[in-house]
Design a protein around this nucleic acid. Sequence first.
RNA 1: GGUUCGAUAGCUCAGCUGGAUAGAGCAACUGCCUUCUAAGCAGUCGGUCCGGGGUUCGAAUCCCCGUCGAAUCACCA
Length: 621
Amino acid sequence: MEIEQQLSASIKAAVKSLYNIELSDKQVQLSPTRKEFEGHLTLMVFPFMKQTPIKNPELLGQAIGEWLVNNEPLVTKFNVIKGFLNLSINAGSWVEKLQSIYANPSFGIQPVNCNAPLVMIEYSSPNTNKPLHLGHLRNILLGWSLSKIVAACGNRVVKTNIVNDRGIHICKSMLAWKKWFDGATPESTGKKGDHLIGDCYVAFDKHYKAELKDILANDPEIQGIHVFKDQLPDGTLPEDVEKTAEARKGVAEMKSTLMQEAREMLRKWEAGDPEVRELWSMMNEWVYAGFDETYRMMGVGFDKIYYESNTYLEGKGLVLDGLEKGLFFRKADGSVWADFTKEGLDQKILLRKDGTSVYMTQDIGTAKLRYQDYPIDKMIYVVGNEQNYHFQVLSLLLDRLGFKWGKDLVHFSYGMVELPNGKMKSREGTVVDADDLMAAMIDDAREASSERLADMSDEEKQNVYRIIGLGALKYFLLKVNPVNNMVFNPAESIDFNGNTGPFIQYTHARIKSVLRKAEAETLSAEGLDGVEISEKEQTIIQKLLDFEQVVKRAGAEYSPALIANYTYDLAKEYNQFYHDTSILKEEDARKRQFRLVLSTCVARVIKTAMDLLGIEVPERM
RNA sequence: GGUUCGAUAGCUCAGCUGGAUAGAGCAACUGCCUUCUAAGCAGUCGGUCCGGGGUUCGAAUCCCCGUCGAAUCACCA
């Protein structure tokens, strides 16, 4: 990086000295030289050619190249192809850079002080009526990685979770448990609590569906519902089959006794009915124990967890205040609305006519509590792209209410995980369960690596399987640009070869193995001045130097994928070097030393980068 | 229908604020383990960067118009 800055300044000086022209930063475009050409960094001369008296790009490149060779010690030689000036940097400068990387154990990570901006990041945000699935995994891994990256960019970070622990969905599970589960507990069934509650939810849905079917088939009132299309010229009134079915379904849902019971339970919950509350607490505790286990296995956590049962009433007050201040308006039926038609959006309901909260109101309430707890400078919500509209409105709403971070709250919107034949549907049993998937990945890792680790203790082995299996899964989910939907094929297990987590982990383990064998040698980055280095070695140093910029960009663009792809590139470069350069058998002691230092730095950057993704790297595999 | 997002090799994906002949991995085929870990390395095969205009020295990238796909437009969360 500093090499580029220095070079950039010299190029400006060159153009100034040759043609008396001041170049802007934008006009000096340096990029890594493509492999098929000689050189390390390439300058494009087109952006400023018009201003110079020389209208031939080759001649212009030639002139600047000559000036640099004579005046800038970094540059040893150059060549010009079309408008591209390829510059070669002297080997000593690369070695110096490597030495400074080696000297800085936290290379790439910005220090954080107590005055740094405070960024709160919300992710996971589960409902408490079913276990976590693959979609949650993407969310949670993105949130965790983002927290690491934002912190690495010099911010204070508070990781938070809003648990949706109340509402009709949990009442459905509670009702099903009471009706059909005969007092089953996680202990009595040996099931994780979240899975047991998930079973309840499925059971409710199954019975509910059956009841609806029965009502639709047998209820005379429903049979009498018909919706017709417009009259045809011949006077007939064709029935609109679709709308009829829709209307019948709507009435059937109202008539369902199961649904009525669930609603009654919700009403009792809101009224604070002790029996309902007790059941609710018990079942939620089961779920939390289950979630905690999943989070622990994933290696993630939170600094502060909010529960919707504590926040859902909070928004009301703010909305009523806002109403008094004229920020919102009340409709004739008594419901309260915000008008965003001036901002190009619609009107949005904030309180129902009976005064109860909606989703949006709860988010306002949560925001209020968070702001009371922390002096937030920036808020990042990791939530799927299906809620883009919601957050667009929330941003305007919080801004109107005077939250200073409302206007630029970040909705970190990511795409859905789809199966080869479309979306995951819990109703259709096509959901990929998070616990199952992690266990399967660890099994695959065991199968792939048990032979190699024969001399390890069982406990050590188990740990390596876990690191590899989860590494494969996490990398798979994080390497894809978050904004895109992605496809997961359960039939093909996640690969361990190629652009994968284990490939990168393997590179790290290999380096560690070499370093262990070199342990007898005292490793030092001193005394490497003038050591001869290969093009590949130079390329790796250049790649290492990129790391700082990649972290910054990943932070600015909220993209763990950038870190993932960078790390893969680095590992690939290193593997090529490893393949055709011997390290320990090199006879020249300084070259050997240099290669060990280079390898150490690569291992360290891999470890740091993978940590930013929430992925561990093993010492052996 | 409105809004937002997306479309790159058979499949999964990279491609930075516009830069040289568009890159990886998987799959298929071929080499390389008596030498630091072959989860590796090297190679072959594979492209109308959805289509059409425009901007300019130069477009996968920026702008406009289409086509297709996803999400959303609930007094659900």
